[in-house]
Amino acid sequence: MILFFISRHILMQIHGTLNVVEQSETELINEKNMLIRSMAHDIRTPLAGLQSYAEIIKMENKKGAIPTEHIDVIFNKICEIKGLTDQLFDYSLACNEEALELDAPCNMESAIGDYLSEMAFILRENSFSLDIEKLIWKDFKITVNSNFLGRIFNNITNNICKYADSKAPVCVSSIYRSKDAGIEITNHIADKSSLFNTTGMGIRNITIMMKQMNGRAIVSHNNTEFRITLWFSRA
């Protein structure tokens, strides 16, 4: 009997220690994500000032004292750094250990339609055409987090603008199954070597965010085509 109580006491101590360790690990993860978020924010502030300064130089460079291509290089590098800080910020949000609050269930068109319209507008502004013949809206309810969904489509739009061939249409279609539904976006790749120059953080962020919303992101590509499908569970 004494051995039983001793063993039970030891097991309770071990259980308590494991809980403390688990709590400490969660706190460390949250602290790490907060640090990443703070770093991304701290970089963004001077970067915004630098971008404004570059825009002023571009507007005031009427006499061509500075070659236009040099200013364009500055702009491109600023945009590149901004893209990386945005991805860091998204990563810190996606990896947060706290439970994600989802919006109330609504039809796919209501949940996703505005984000697709915004994506279409930006792509057309960048000389892309869209094929939405297979995009069909049905009475299918899903639950999403609007903040995450906005970041996901912003990421997809930026990737298309960077790596897609504007001569070929970007195809957007919908897929419906009994327990989930998907939005599939396909584009032709402008330069296949560009796939090896990306960090892949944007795609990882999309995958994590979709998982947080009880969905999935499936990515596939070959030398000529890139496809991402966002799967949403039925609410």
Rank of each mutant, 00 (worst) to 15 (best):
I78T: 04
M39W: 09
D90R: 03
L102I: 02
I122M: 09
K82E: 06
M39C: 11
R124M: 10
C79V: 00
G16W: 06
L102K: 12
A104N: 11
I71A: 09
I66P: 07
T85E: 03
H70Y: 15
G64D: 00
G49H: 15
N33D: 02
N30G: 03
I36M: 10
M59P: 01
I74L: 12
S92K: 07
F75S: 10
G83W: 06
Y91P: 00
I57V: 14
F75E: 11
C79G: 12
L11K: 14
A48H: 14
I57G: 04
I78S: 06
D114N: 09
E31F: 15
K62A: 05
A111W: 10
I14Y: 04
R8K: 12
E101M: 09
I132Y: 02
R124C: 09
I132V: 07
L123P: 02
E118C: 05
I43L: 13
S52A: 04
L100C: 05
Y53A: 14
A48F: 12
Y91R: 10
E109V: 01
D103L: 03
K82F: 11
T26M: 10
E22R: 15
N126A: 09
E27C: 03
F121H: 11
E22D: 02
D86R: 06
E22K: 15
Y115Q: 06
M59A: 14
D42W: 10
D114Y: 13
I6V: 13
T45R: 15
N19V: 04
T17P: 01
R37V: 00
T17V: 03
Y53E: 03
P105S: 06
L28R: 10
T45N: 10
E97N: 14
G64W: 04
F5Y: 13
E31G: 01
L28I: 02
Y91E: 01
A120Q: 08
N19A: 10
D72Q: 12
H70T: 02
K77I: 01
I29M: 12
V73L: 12
S38E: 06
S127P: 00
I74S: 01
L50A: 08
A40K: 06
E101G: 08
E125L: 08
L116H: 07
E25L: 14
H15I: 05
T17C: 07
I36R: 05
G49M: 07
I57P: 12
S129Q: 08
L88P: 01
L116G: 03
S24I: 00
H41D: 03
I6Y: 15
L84D: 03
T17Q: 09
L93H: 06
H9L: 08
E31S: 13
K82P: 02
I56Q: 11
H41W: 10
E80R: 15
S38Q: 11
L18K: 07
R8Q: 06
T17W: 04
L100M: 01
E27D: 07
S52G: 05
H70K: 14
Y115N: 08
D103I: 00
I122R: 15
S117G: 03
L100I: 02
F5P: 00
